[in-house]
Computed example of a mutant assay.
Amino acid sequence: MGDAVEDRLAARLASLRGERGWSLEFLADRSGVSRSTLSRLERGEVSPTTALLGRVCGAYGMTQSRLLAEVESEPAAALIRAADQPVWRDEAAGFTRRAVSPPHAGLRAEMIEGVLGPGADVAYDRPTVEGLEQHVWILDGTLELTGGDTTYGLATGDCLRFRLWSATRFRNLTASPVRYAIVQVPP
């Protein structure tokens, strides 16, 4: 994300808390993220990791895609060219996320492209939105995806459909990147 997007993200995180009338302590309890980290996020002093952003979004009952769309893009359009699709990187985790579908407040489905670098491991300790329907389609490479107590080995062309009710983990156990598409539909 660019500096302007990071600034808008920080401001949006602060406004979400303010809109709900939540204290930092309440949000910390709800998200499992420390008050000091939340405060630094809202002031734009730190960039959130994928996992951290997932926990905060979960506290607000919204997907990461929806939050990032609010700060990354212009008003809704029917078409978004590849060059204009917002890309967000979590360098520390080895994860890149592209918002493929144009954001629209009145539509629920979202399409995301994810790329996990070799050895990357991204874990979410809880769903951002309980019951979120996800379709994970492997475009290139292999991915180990764990949902709850079940682990799936997915290869190019495989598609897994499930609902998020518990922790998930995306792992690339290979020496090559894995590229996948996620279609998600809130309940």
Rank of each mutant, 00 (worst) to 15 (best):
G2W: 00
E6L: 09
R12Q: 15
R12H: 08
R12T: 10
L13M: 12
A14D: 14
S15P: 01
L16G: 02
G18A: 15
E19N: 13
S23R: 03
S23G: 10
A28W: 08
A28G: 11
D29C: 00
G32S: 04
S34D: 07
S36Q: 11
T37P: 01
S39T: 02
E42Y: 04
R43N: 14
R43Y: 04
E45Y: 09
V46H: 15
V46M: 10
V46W: 11
S47L: 02
T49K: 09
T50M: 15
A51N: 05
L52Y: 08
L52T: 15
L53K: 11
L53R: 07
L53M: 09
G58S: 04
G58M: 04
A59K: 05
Y60S: 00
Y60A: 00
G61P: 04
M62E: 11
M62I: 14
S65E: 12
S65R: 08
L67K: 03
L67V: 01
E70D: 14
E72V: 00
P75R: 06
P75Y: 07
L79H: 11
A83V: 08
Q85L: 02
Q85F: 06
Q85M: 01
E91Y: 03
E91M: 02
A92S: 13
A99T: 02
V100C: 04
V100G: 02
S101T: 11
S101Y: 03
P102G: 09
P102E: 08
M111N: 05
M111L: 15
M111W: 10
E113L: 05
L116Q: 06
L116W: 05
V122M: 06
A123Q: 12
R126S: 10
R126E: 06
H135K: 00
H135V: 10
V136C: 13
W137E: 13
W137Y: 15
L139A: 14
D140V: 00
G141P: 06
L145K: 05
T146C: 05
T146F: 04
G148F: 03
G148P: 03
T150A: 13
T151S: 15
Y152N: 06
L154C: 09
G157P: 01
R161M: 07
F162N: 02
L164K: 06
L164Q: 13
S166E: 15
S166N: 12
T168A: 14
R169F: 02
F170H: 15
F170E: 12
F170G: 04
R171G: 06
N172Q: 09
L173G: 13
L173R: 14
T174N: 09
R179T: 13
R179L: 07
I182Y: 04
Q184I: 00
